[in-house]
């Protein structure tokens, strides 16, 4: 989708972004949560989502369709906004040591890949990704659907492409993703990964 036209499209987009942001905030990925409904500077989930949408609406020329969907563009800006403004806020006493390199934001990586430096900050640099990935591979070995979803995701395929490419049903994909989610969760526990988003 290169342009959001109908109210229904706006509603679907808003809901996706809201849940995405709610999850990020509640899991305290990059900031100190103050109470159940408001965060740094008294912001609410709606405020972060609105700021992301505003970024797209008032600067449509900044959005490059070849780098990803509008949704990815806005998500990237929600996370960037969280890191750039809230993490360094004096209200935030838990994650002041975060590092970000603004020059990485200007690269021509797609919007999803542009999130990686922020994820890296979250997970830290002491993780042995090879061991972690090998563990995930061993956990899904023998389950064809999971292996295909894993291959599809790591080859940058989207849900629809994976379903089509590997000739699986939507239900098989959704069930597979739920199973993969459990594998990721168990992996996080096993290796003591800091992340809590799963």
């Amino acid at each position: 989708m290169n342009e959001i036209k109908t109210n229904k499209e706006w509603e679907d987009l808003y809901e996706c972004l809201y849940i995405f942001t709610d999850k990020l905030l509640k899991n305290r990925m990059w900031y100190k949560k103050l109470d159940d409904s408001s965060f740094i500077k008294g912001k609410q989930v709606h405020d972060y989502v609105s700021e992301g949408i505003e970024r797209y609406m008032f600067n449509p020329e900044k959005y490059k369709p070849e780098l990803g969907s509008i949704q990815d563009f806005i998500k990237f800006h929600i996370i960037r906004n969280l890191v750039r403004t809230d993490v360094v806020s004096s209200e935030n006493t838990e994650t002041l040591d975060i590092y970000y390199n603004s020059s990485e934001d200007e690269s021509d990586s797609n919007y999803i890949e542009s999130l990686f430096p922020y994820l890296e900050n979250y997970f830290g640099d002491k993780i042995d990704y090879e061991t972690v990935t090998n563990h995930i591979n061993s956990e899904i070995e023998g389950n064809t659907i999971l292996e295909e979803i894993f291959l599809g995701i790591t080859s940058d395929l989207k849900r629809g492409d994976i379903i089509e490419q590997f000739n699986m049903s939507e239900a098989e994909y959704d069930n597979g993703m739920r199973r993969l989610k459990t594998v990721l969760k168990n992996t996080a526990t096993k290796f003591g990964l800091k992340r809590q988003v799963i």
Partner: peptide
């Protein structure tokens, strides 16, 4: 690993 995390999100 990051692609899996983002796909999960």
């Amino acid at each position: 690993f990051f692609k899996l995390i983002v796909a999960d999100l």
